[in-house]
């Protein structure tokens, strides 16, 4: 049986979901037997090719997130929103009720220790959205794996179910919004 190709990324997230993925501990050995990682912070591959599963951590807070997300959607047969931020916007979405002007002013003009601060306008810097959004408001998402982060057991169950072609089913204790 050929290995499943899996891509992962963290957009507006904290990499906590990736940490939880690594928390499957010794099952990692089983995992690498069954899957091959494409684009992922684990492999440091920068762009993904055709994959079976894409795991997206984090919400969408800027233009670059959209490019990454669209690349994942285009290349991944099954796209999974992994964790609270990808599913609801999460903690980053707390900024949704702060005016973007005020954010920039605070960060670049009035922050402690700043003098003659200026808002950077380098095209290399991703431009932020007015609000942070969950990924399913930008692309079609096939599965949702909640949790902040999702427990390692939940990620393992999810991946093994998907690998086996089953509809993923979480036990009660595995389902968390926090």
């Amino acid at each position: 049986m050929s290995k499943l190709r899996v891509a992962t990324c963290s957009i507006a997230g904290c990499f906590g979901c990736h940490m939880s993925l690594l928390d499957i501990d010794e099952r990692l050995f089983e995992l690498v037997k069954a899957v091959e990682f494409d684009r992922s912070p684990i492999t440091d591959i920068k762009h993904c090719g055709p994959c079976d599963i894409g795991l997206v951590e984090g919400g969408v807070c800027n233009a670059e997130n959209v490019h990454v997300l669209k690349e994942f959607r285009k290349n991944c047969r099954i796209l999974v929103a992994m964790g609270s931020c990808a599913i609801t916007g999460g903690i980053p979405a707390w900024r949704n009720n702060v005016d973007l002007w005020d954010c920039f002013q605070e960060v670049y003009h009035y922050g402690i220790g700043l003098e003659n601060g200026q808002v950077p306008n380098d095209p290399e810097l991703p431009l932020p959205f007015d609000k942070v959004h969950p990924i399913n408001e930008v692309v079609r998402v096939d599965h949702f794996l909640p949790g902040c982060p999702p427990p390692a057991d939940a990620i393992w169950r999810f991946l093994t179910d998907l690998a086996a072609g089953r509809e993923p089913r979480l036990d009660y204790e595995m389902l968390h919004y926090d």
Binding site: V119, P120, P123, E124, L127, D130
Partner: peptide
């Protein structure tokens, strides 16, 4: 949804 940020940064480049 990028319009405000464009206004603040004065950017209008491709990105």
């Amino acid at each position: 949804a990028l319009a405000t940020a464009r206004l603040i940064t004065g950017r209008d480049d491709e990105w």
